[in-house]
Design a protein around this nucleic acid. Structure first.
Length: 399
RNA sequence: GGUGAGAUACUCAAGUGGCCAACGAGGGCAGACUGUAAAUCUGCUGGUUUUUACCUUCGAAGGUUCGAAUCCUUCUCUCACCA
């Protein structure tokens, strides 16, 4: 029992620190029914979860199966600083209303994966603000600048001569202090969080709360480009709230290589099942596209249900394999005779008439499925289906 | 506080009086080829129906000049060394 649980927990994990502690926690649960806390922190500014986050969430939900109580921290205080990636400077404090709204939005998304009955949603401002200036000072005495500079991105930036503001040093400390305040037993995060996660252990020891959290790091899921980690700012993400059609299409657009990575980290198939699939694709008995479609179906199903997933697949075949017009496309109405380039801009297919002209020149624009080449074309009264590239469509009614 | 260096489009980065809407690379978009994959090849990548033209843009504001991303002044920000 303990053995199976541990193996499930270890699947896909990038690194575990203090595995003994985890075994101990599981043992206590199986033998005495004792619960324990599993912490993970999230930024309050971006309540749009994507599949990269779900790698972590899926693992957390597994812990809930084995006695874990999830402490879902919304970093409304630390969010003001922003995790020091070097890109963002100090951010504005979000007003209460926005934080609450974002938290709501988190709940809706998170509870598609986590069990609400075994999840606590906490705001870190609630204990950090109580620290006050003296508490904050005390916190800074627990760690040295030299050690702080050991953190990889600090070191890089310091050596290359980029700016590091003092407030950025506070971020890891405060995140670590969260672990002190809520007495977490396990903290989870991405591999990029290693420094911050370990800070939790360090501070729990410094503050003498009587335990040190174990740390589990999950690999960062690569985004659609297959190179960078999935992130909203890079625009290479699949959001859990994406429309079924979008979600399906995005998954199918990943490379074959990346598909296996997604299988490992996102699919509920066992490792053995995935291996056998891989085998079949390699010897040619299954087309890789079919395998990818199955993956897309499984994931869309998870967030939107059977019916939507099936429809998304049908729609996809219709538009891409058979080259037909999608079912739902945005509709626009415009007045009188109108210049094609302007019409494309008004239908939000192009950002400027200059861009529209360039695309027409490059054979990227079609009307009612026929490519056009006349940049001066005037659209008369009637209904048209405009298309730019492969995926941008609009239905236009000229009156 | 002192001395020196720097700020160019989404990112990196050339350009140091007119040939500059600004080399090149990455990214992005489009076309060909495909499985809407990857790889590869090609084109485009500030705006404007005067498109071999015009307008706006090289940290900000002024100035010199027929003409400035380029020269001068002030300011803002960044970095290095010294204190």
């Amino acid at each position: 029992m303990l053995e199976t649980a541990l193996n499930e927990i270890k699947r896909g994990v990038s690194e575990i620190i203090d595995e003994k502690r985890i075994i101990e926690l599981l043992k206590n649960y199986f033998e005495k029914g004792e619960n324990y806390f599993v912490k993970a922190g999230f930024d309050p500014t971006a309540p749009d979860l994507h599949l990269g986050h779900t790698v972590l969430l899926q693992k957390m939900s597994l812990f809930q199966k084995y006695g874990g109580i999830v402490q879902f921290i919304i970093g409304d205080f630390t969010g003001m600083i922003g995790d020091p990636t070097g890109k963002n400077e100090t951010r504005k404090k979000l007003d209460r209303e926005t934080v609450v709204k974002n938290a709501k939005s988190y709940e809706e998304q998170v509870f598609k994966i986590l069990d609400p009955k075994k999840t606590k949603i906490l705001f870190n401002s609630s204990w950090i603000e109580k620290l006050g200036s003296s508490g904050m000072l005390e916190l800074t005495t627990t760690f040295s600048v030299a050690r702080m500079l050991e953190r990889e991105d600090f070191e890089k930036r310091y050596k290359s001569g980029a700016t590091i503001s003092i407030s950025e040093f506070l971020y890891p400390l405060l995140q670590g202090y969260d672990s002190v305040a809520i007495k977490s037993d396990i903290e989870m995060g991405g591999t990029d969080q290693k420094f911050n996660l370990l800070m939790g252990r360090h501070l729990q020891r410094s503050y003498g709360i009587g335990k040190e959290q174990a740390v589990i790091m999950m690999p960062l899921l690569e985004g659609l480009d297959g190179v960078n980690k999935m992130s909203k700012s890079l625009g290479n993400y699949i959001g859990v709230t994406d429309e079924p059609n979008d979600m399906f299409g995005k998954i199918l657009s990943i490379s074959d290589e990346l598909m296996w990575r997604y299988y490992e980290l996102l699919s509920s198939l066992t490792i053995a099942q995935i291996e056998s699939l891989k085998q079949k694709v390699n010897d040619g008995s299954i087309h890789p596209k079919v395998t990818k479609e199955d993956l897309a179906l499984e994931i869309v199903k998870r967030y939107h249900g059977d019916e939507s997933a099936r429809k998304a697949k049908e729609e996809f075949d219709k538009v891409h394999s058979k080259n037909q017009i999608p079912t739902d496309i945005p509709e626009f109405e415009l007045e009188g005779s109108i210049w094609i380039a302007q019409a494309l801009v008004d239908c939000k297919l192009e950002s400027s008439t200059s861009q529209a002209r360039r695309d027409i020149k490059q054979n990227a624009v079609s009307i009612d499925q026929n490519k056009i080449s006349d940049q001066q074309l005037q659209l008369k009264i009637g209904e048209y289906i405009l298309q730019v590239g492969k995926r941008k469509f609009a239905r236009l009614k000229v009156k």
